[in-house]
């Protein structure tokens, strides 16, 4: 969702700080995941920047579920945004403007015109996102604290099991992960195939 919003903002509006936003989107690509995990801990951890405030309000981020989600979002949302921006830009805003002059509300315009127009890129982005989320290790490992059954992701689980010399279990989870990765890959190929069609169709216009 963050990705969609960012892509929309970048593609549709001209505003001050737009370039800054674009660089921010690219940031996760260029920063090592472990570092970004550390940054999160620094920001939100007990001794961190927002730490005291968070503790005062009894909000747990690091070593808890929100931390996991935050870290995952941070490393994955550029995939959605990056996929969507070029597509939205090439669409221009004529379709949206047409809808608005026909009396559609901005919400209706977004859901009936903008989203269907970008649905292939969106799926694609979400898929890449998913793939990354499944594989993400670094950032999540630092933030999560690896509390089993609570703040754990599959790659982390593999590592824990492996470290505990539970080889077979580790391999079982690892193959599950590999299976999921394969499914994602197949989906991605299918989509690319479709998506290619969609691109060809829009060129015909």
């Amino acid at each position: 969702m963050v990705g969609i919003a960012a892509a929309w903002a970048v593609a549709k509006f001209e505003f001050r700080g737009k370039n800054l936003l674009i660089s921010l989107i690219d940031l996760p690509f260029s920063v090592s995941p472990v570092i970004s995990g550390l940054v999160f801990v620094l920001l939100f951890g007990a001794q961190g920047y927002f730490g005291p405030w968070l503790q005062a309000h009894d909000i747990k981020i690091v070593f808890a579920l929100p931390g996991l989600i935050l870290a995952t979002v941070f490393v994955t949302f550029p995939f959605v945004a990056r996929e969507l921006i070029p597509h939205m830009q090439s669409l221009g805003s004529a379709d949206e403007e047409a809808a608005l002059t026909l009396g559609a509300s901005p919400w209706r315009t977004f859901f009936t015109i903008t989203l269907p127009n970008v649905k292939w890129s969106l799926f694609y982005g979400v898929l890449l996102c998913n793939a990354r989320a499944m594989g993400e290790f670094g950032a999540v490992a630092v933030v999560s604290g690896k509390i089993r059954g609570e703040t754990n992701t599959m790659p982390l689980h593999v590592e824990i099991l492996y470290n505990e010399y539970m080889g077979p279990a580790a391999f079982a989870v690892a193959s599950l992960l590999a299976g999921l990765a394969l499914v994602t890959l197949v989906l991605k190929t299918l989509l690319e195939w479709h998506y290619g069609d969609a691109i060809a169709a829009s060129r015909r216009h």
Partner: peptide, 19 residues
């Protein structure tokens, strides 16, 4: 508002909804 203006606008590149 745009809706209240009741404008029929035909765009240079038609802007038909492809979907």
């Amino acid at each position: 508002s745009l809706r209240e203006r009741r404008i029929g606008f035909v765009f240079q590149q038609y802007a038909l909804f492809k979907t």
